[in-house]
């Protein structure tokens, strides 16, 4: 698979709006190591991964928010509470993710 940043550059060159999500911290069992990335476009198309599929849906929504705002967000996920099971990590780990629009 092509590198996520290269995909981001290619999508930008096609005129698509793009945000990049990066795993910046992990604790315990986490499926994707620090530095793992996901690229999202304005329509929610994505490549790459920041977890085993557990939190991607939420990250994609956040990424689209940053595309709209032109800013950045730092997100945290874990299994600390009941609701975390809805959008969380069944593996028991915790992760922090930086989401930023590329502009």
């Amino acid at each position: 698979m092509a590198d996520v940043l290269e995909i981001a550059a290619a999508w930008l060159a096609e005129g698509r709006q793009v945000a990049v999500a990066t795993v910046i911290e992990t604790w315990g069992s986490a499926p994707q190591p620090v530095g793992s990335q996901l690229v999202v476009d304005g329509n929610g198309n994505f490549e790459g991964a920041v977890s085993g599929g557990c939190v991607e849906g939420d990250v994609i929504t956040a990424a689209q928010d940053t595309i709209a705002s032109g800013g950045h967000k730092v997100l945290s996920y874990g299994v600390a509470d009941e609701t975390a099971w809805k959008v969380g990590l069944a593996c028991g780990g915790k992760i922090r993710i930086l989401v930023e629009a590329v502009r």
């Binding site: 590198d3 290269e6 981001a8 550059a9 990049v20 590329v102 502009r103």
Partner: peptide, 14 residues
């Protein structure tokens, strides 16, 4: 992230 920074990172890696 700025576009030109993304381009610089990709160029450095290449």
């Amino acid at each position: 992230m700025k576009r030109d920074l993304l381009a610089k990172v990709i160029a450095a890696r290449a």
